[in-house]
Simulated scan of single mutants.
Amino acid sequence: MADRAPTFIILLRAIGPVTHKLMSMAQWRDAAEQAGFSAPETMVNTGNMIAQFGGTAEAARKAMLPVLRGFGLGENIAPIVRKPAQLRALLGADPISDAAQARPSETGVYFFAAKTPDFDWIKDHDGPEAIHVVADHLVVDFTQDVAKSGKLIRKIDKFCGLNTARNWNTTRKLAERASAREKE
């Protein structure tokens, strides 16, 4: 449908059991709809939303901020917005094909708030994790339990700024559902 508002994927940073006490996914959907997002739907319970919004990705991000603050969520809870095409391109690059199939919970995609995060530090990374840059995102094969990669995660936070991560399967499911919505 040519005149329908664009579809966006909204990924919240720092969502978990503590924040669920302040904002359930159902409450988030209702508040997003009142803020101008069309047919918001959430996937899993970790701050993933797909919705249409009449504007740019930056306008969607700005419109989502007061929704989150309305629940009393602090500045550390931040929306990172992507278009379905961005996730499709990321998945199409498929830099971790074997890892994503063998160890999907040990693969991750980092989404950044900054348009051009600083990735210069990666050349000095000496951990067991394999890191790939795909269109201003990091795709990481942790090669082990993610909890054992605290050093890498701290480096990503320090050098790349505000971010959120999703495993490969969640990223794929979000891209598939958002793409299907674009066709509806």
Rank of each mutant, 00 (worst) to 15 (best):
G16I: 01
N48F: 06
D120Y: 12
V146H: 01
A2L: 15
I153T: 10
P79D: 05
I80H: 02
V18K: 08
G108C: 08
Q86T: 15
S38H: 07
D141Q: 04
A59F: 00
L12V: 05
R69P: 00
E106F: 12
R166P: 04
M23T: 06
D141S: 04
D120C: 05
G92K: 14
V139I: 14
A102H: 09
Q144L: 06
T164P: 01
E33W: 05
N167H: 02
V133Y: 05
V67L: 05
K158R: 15
A180K: 13
A165M: 12
T19L: 12
I156D: 03
G74I: 08
S105M: 09
A32E: 03
D157W: 04
N76R: 13
N48K: 06
H137W: 07
T56M: 00
E41N: 07
S38A: 12
T19V: 10
S105Q: 10
L162Q: 13
D3T: 14
L73Q: 05
I156A: 06
R61K: 11
L73N: 02
P66S: 02
M43P: 01
P95L: 03
A2F: 11
M23G: 06
A39W: 00
K21M: 07
A114E: 14
I80M: 08
A147D: 13
K115A: 15
G161N: 03
G127S: 07
A114P: 01
F8R: 02
D136H: 14
I9C: 14
